[in-house]
Amino acid sequence: MNKILETSKLSAGYGALRVLHEIDFLISEGERIAIVGLNGHGKTTLFRALTHLVGWQQGSIILNEKEIGGRRALGAGRKTPSIIHAGISMAPQGDAIFPGLTVEQHLDCGAYTKDSWKNRSSKKEQIYEIFPPLETLKKSLVGKLSGGERRMVSIGRMLMEEASLYLVDEPSLGLAPKISENVIKALLKVEIKNSAMIIAEQNVSILKGNVDRMVGMHAGRLRGDVGHIALG
């Protein structure tokens, strides 16, 4: 099994606030990992550090044997497109999408390499298979969809690219329970052969038993197991 992503001593934060504390983390080909933890403990910051969107960061991030980490973020977002092109595909938290584009155009935006741009119609068919409701909404503006549909579009856009690492940030945030369950089930059905997937989630019960590993995140540090006092 090849290593997809290896971080060593990854720290990141915003100004005086240090959010991540020297994270050592490894994910290999074919793995599907869940990172669970409460709000404000650094799940999103970890993803944003991987894509160079935090205030500052330090430590090495090796993606497919290529160093994408940096001592200090070169202005948030400056290196992001090149990191994305190196093989990370991310569905950000909430609905960070383009409200004025149609679902189809939105999915097209996800295909950023030449190959995937050429094969985008077949790719889109696959996305519609994963999320059937999108097929009928093809031509409608994303800004007018419901929250669940928008999340599907956001995740669909992420899946348009043959990336080596998929990052999904809080797929169930703010959705009704039925819909969030559907979204996560669809996400778990996605085949990952040569790639890996990390899902950051608060809702542990949906993911339990369906992912390869479950990693807890507390106060900016990763913990191998998730400690819970049994309920009831």
Partner: peptide, 13 residues
């Protein structure tokens, strides 16, 4: 135009 950060995450520079 619509979402610079989302665009950056779609690999658009």
């Amino acid at each position: 135009m619509q979402n610079p950060e989302g665009a950056a995450l779609s690999g658009i520079s």
